[in-house]
Computed example of a mutant assay.
Amino acid sequence: MKITAQEEYGLRILLRVARSDQKEGISIPALSEVEGLSVAYVSKLSRILRIAGYLYSTPGNKGGYVLALPAAEININQVLKVLGGALFSKNFCEEYPGAEKLCTNSVDCSIRSLWQMIQLTVDQLLDRVSLQDLISQEQASTDLLKSLLNPDHLLKPATTDKIIG
């Protein structure tokens, strides 16, 4: 399992826009320069984030991107799923059955149970993180995220009905 470049850079762009104090927004060329990415790639990621409702483009010559929602209302789990999808989706077995039409392990698969539990744990953690939580400096964000890893926070509110979302 890996975090894709699209997820990493998309989240970085969203965070950069959230940290911007420019009322007209931050332009694609400016995002490209500060993040060290090509203009084309920033355009692609910005478009994905705009279509998903996280960014709003301001019109005009000095226009750019601003958050479409308050940072506290932007759920990191949902952003990552928009940018790249879940680590393990419930459709995985149908999409990758191997050489057969149906997976040979579709009835009894202990590995699927492992992936489902990993996805559940990741979802439970990331559902508790907003973009606002990441705006602060690294140490403050680290402290917050460590508190979320407290065993009392994980595996409490979710049910097994929502193992894969």
Score class of each variant (00 low, 15 high):
M1D: 09
T4M: 11
T4Q: 02
G10Q: 07
G10A: 07
G10K: 13
R12K: 11
R12H: 02
A18V: 07
R19Y: 00
S20M: 01
E24G: 03
P29N: 12
L31N: 00
S32K: 05
G36R: 04
K44E: 12
S46H: 15
R47S: 15
Y56F: 12
K62Y: 08
G63L: 14
G63D: 01
Y65C: 01
L67I: 12
A68L: 08
A68Y: 09
I74Q: 09
I74G: 03
N75A: 03
N75T: 10
N75H: 04
I76Q: 02
Q78N: 15
V79H: 04
L83G: 13
G84I: 13
G85R: 09
G85D: 12
N91P: 03
F92S: 04
E94N: 11
E94Y: 13
A99I: 14
K101E: 05
L102T: 03
L102K: 02
D108R: 02
I111G: 01
M117I: 09
M117H: 05
I118P: 05
L120D: 00
V122W: 04
L126P: 08
L126G: 03
L126H: 06
D127L: 05
R128K: 09
V129G: 01
V129N: 06
V129F: 02
V129S: 10
S130K: 14
L131A: 05
L131T: 07
Q132T: 06
E138Y: 10
Q139R: 10
S141V: 14
T142E: 07
N150L: 09
D152A: 13
H153P: 02
L155F: 09
T159G: 14
K162I: 05
K162E: 13
I163E: 08
I163W: 10
G165A: 13
